[in-house]
Design a protein around this nucleic acid. Sequence first.
RNA 1: GGCGAUAUAGCUCAGUUGGUUAGAGCACGGGAUUCAUAACCCCGGGGUCGGUGGUUCAAAUCCACCUAUCGCCA
Length: 672
Amino acid sequence: MSKRTLLVTSALPYANGPIHLGHLVEYLQTDIWVRFQKQRGHVCYYVCADDTHGTPIMLRAISEGISPEALIAKVGKEHLADFTEFGIVFDNYHSTHSPENQALSRLIYERLRDGGHINSRSITQAYDPVKEMFLSDRFIKGECPKCGAADQYGDSCEACGATYSPTDLKNAVSVLSGEKPITKDSVHYFFNLANFSDMLQDWTTAGHLQPEVSNKLKEWLEQGLKEWDISRDAPYFGFEIPDAPGKYFYVWLDAPIGYMASFKNLCDKQGLDFDAFWAKDSNAELYHFIGKDIIYFHALFWPAMLKGANFRTPSAIFAHGFLTVNGEKMSKSRGTFIKARTYLEHLNPEYLRYYFAAKLSAGVDDIDLNFDDFSQRVNADLVGKVVNIASRCSSFIHKRFEGQLSDVCSEPELFQQFVDANQTIAEFYESREFGKAMREIMALADKANQYIDEKKPWLMAKVEGQERELQQVCSMGINLFRLLMAYLKPVIPVLATEAEKFLAIESQPWPVTATPLIKHAINPFEALMTRVEADKIQAIVDASKENLQATAPTVKAKQFEPIAPTIEFDDFAKIDLRIAKIIKAEHVEGAEKLLQLTVDIGDETRNILAGIKSAYAPEALEGKLTLVIANLAPRKMRFGLSEGMVLAAGPGGKDIWVLSPDEGATAGMRVK
RNA sequence: GGCGAUAUAGCUCAGUUGGUUAGAGCACGGGAUUCAUAACCCCGGGGUCGGUGGUUCAAAUCCACCUAUCGCCA
């Protein structure tokens, strides 16, 4: 087995929200693959970073009242903590908002520009005149021009599926301010992807991609490649384009460069040769694990950018499917939108690592997390089958032989059979057929249990003179267990490490040339893993439902007029609000909208003319408690003097609602 | 709307270039066992392979259409 050099990445999580179980499919898949490579003795670096740029980050920082830098620092820390507790070990975890990324983004941009791959021209876009920023399609809502459905985004209608441009929307408003967007021109920069059509035609069919991905891309390539808008106008959180003040790199331009930047950062820390991995003639292998939703960026833009900037292209891109829970899309209301943190608060992360491994393949199919299947699978496979082998053998070894394994291997052929399986299992791991690898390993576990069952050590224990055989059978079981743990180590590293402690052995390499432990003392057995408790799963679902209420959507179409400018408490204190009792209410001769109210505000009564005739009959008001502004300057109206104002809400007409206090308040009390 | 993927036992999934009675794990039923975290071992029931039509000596597999689910449309 020759030594390979690999650089592996997972897609960068966006710094706009927490890690959830859907994200984890990818990071666990990558981590398992990387651990496997390392266990095999290859040189393998696994780098990742937080994806930190773009309008959503900027807006969220504003809504939280902190700087974007503070926001991404906070979220980045949370992300890394979640990953770490799931056993995902990066060789480096960086940020796209880093000097390395800025320098590399700039370098790549300049090389593309100098190579004639960047164009610029003015385009017309929707613009929010209040927030003073351009609006992408997702920030405009209105009625679908085709079917009239309300509350649809600027690019397509969720109700009828029509696609259109934001200018087609009826009654369009900015999601940010509620204002009607205007259109405005601005110069944008474009990456001319079509220059790379031939190169991509070859690259996408040269074995770098899964066949289904390759087919998908063929479709896009046949339609002809369009230029890619890589710039955004200020205000934007990102990197300013070097030769274009006020213009920023679109987040998707610098995000994949973040892979390089994170690795550059690692190189600087560890003295590695960056060019050995990224130069055009690099011999290192470069792999990107991604979700199938971002294939376009990774299989077209990214290789083209690298090519155009004179860097090497990826060895392969591995796309995976999405996670469904109980057969359905993850849903906040069903409690199946589960954050990594919520899971960690209740269940052992290795359960999920094993479960995902058992279901993952090299394809792009979605995988389903079925809670019943999850606990059955984990309990049956890991606890019932694998750990059980150690459990059932170690008791004899300790009770009868002081922890000493026998001095011979009684079944060398069986042991060798387990060692020989390493090749098949390794092939499955290598090709990301983790489900098949797990099945293979569990078949070995079954074999081990069958062996013990056949030998019946518990009968030997009762027969005098069979001590030696008893020790041999149990030692054999322990040795088989050891190999199983070596094979499972990429998936369940914590359990594997615990098992190594129990076995009193060094960290296990991939068992290509393993020999049985002979005359070896092991440590007392302690439960290595406990069963999944069903109530914990329910607790996760419940907690996920609660999260929903805690995290109300932050960006929502504004239905109401914008909040007025902030005032100080002193401003508020100037307003003297009083509880008032309506003593008398009557129509005003000749007035269309007004009612005349006589109200008791404690020590005095007032005459108030209120514009609420359209919504209230006078007799319905008499005796009612309400709120009035008592120190409003009296106002002379056509029908008389109004000595205050009754508080009411609503758009008008029949929809006016007079405010009233809770029971117990009495006329004259001041509101404060 | 266009395009793609998927649809196999109660559940989660295998089924290589079309080729005997369609497989596994879990669940279920029966038996055996008691060393082991009620684990393990043996046996068994259960599927008109989403639907309809076609090609073929032969279709889960190839083709067409339909239905459902998921995704993509830069």
